[in-house]
Design a protein around this nucleic acid. Sequence first.
DNA 1: TATTGTTATACTCTATAACTATA
DNA 2: TATAGTTATAGAGTATAACAATA
Lengths: 149, 149
Amino acid sequence: MPAHRPPDLGIVDALAQLSFRVQGELGKIAAEHGLSIIQLRLFGILRDRTPAMLELARYLELDKSSMTGLVHRAERRGLVQRSPAPHDGRVTQVSLTPQGLDLVRECEAEVGRRIHALASVLTGPQRSQLARLATILVGNPGQDLTPPR
Amino acid sequence: MPAHRPPDLGIVDALAQLSFRVQGELGKIAAEHGLSIIQLRLFGILRDRTPAMLELARYLELDKSSMTGLVHRAERRGLVQRSPAPHDGRVTQVSLTPQGLDLVRECEAEVGRRIHALASVLTGPQRSQLARLATILVGNPGQDLTPPR
DNA sequence: TATTGTTATACTCTATAACTATA
DNA sequence: TATAGTTATAGAGTATAACAATA
């Protein structure tokens, strides 16, 4: 006969605890590379785009004034660069430097390894099912590490 | 014939995006009550316990010196109180005040509503399945809002 | 000596308000 | 006037190092 299993968490606690667990892992990875979680998100956006400061603020749900410092600190470390937009003299575009891109790639690889490790307690079909349910839940307009165009 | 559906996210992106989505919701709820996420977690712990400063630091994975300020700011607002431990003069115990308890209850109710709303795009069986998979994933030693005794 | 907690210090992250420059 | 961005300022949150008090 099967061993007794403790009851599942309710959906609220399950999602809350899962989110803290995943964020904890992301935070540790970021810290191991000298970054914060918000910088990891910033860099994830910059991987595919060269947005203006204000677009970045919208993606990250930050005030525009918060962007200045965030970008400045990354720029000081040689990870991103600012450049004036060609067609509007008010706009500053932000992009990754080659070092920044290297760092993003390292972090993304590590995130892949660590989240996979976390998910390795599930069977393959369970992982697929979880991915499907989570995809439905976040709605296809992917939000964070890979925000919508 | 059924409409086409975009492919599911991989497990890594699915969990990362889900975690940002849930944390975003928790962060907004905390902010609406004048709290930060870390304070929400602190209060969630204090709901069931009266831990020492060092225990709190372990639960929250913070340095003990970070606890001082965190507790001090909550104490200044009348939400928690410090008291000396009876059997060890070095130890300070932390507990919720009645106002703090009220605030925790309000926040928890709101978290329940908002996470349920988030999960309302799923069917009942899907929600159960998600709760089960997330429960497995976090491992029964529940970590965050309800850490182990 | 070891443990618990605080203080001093420095840095990141964040928002509000006021400002500059461009449209 | 409106928009994009920065600066000044203030506060929360965090860690490291040094310290005081208790065990």
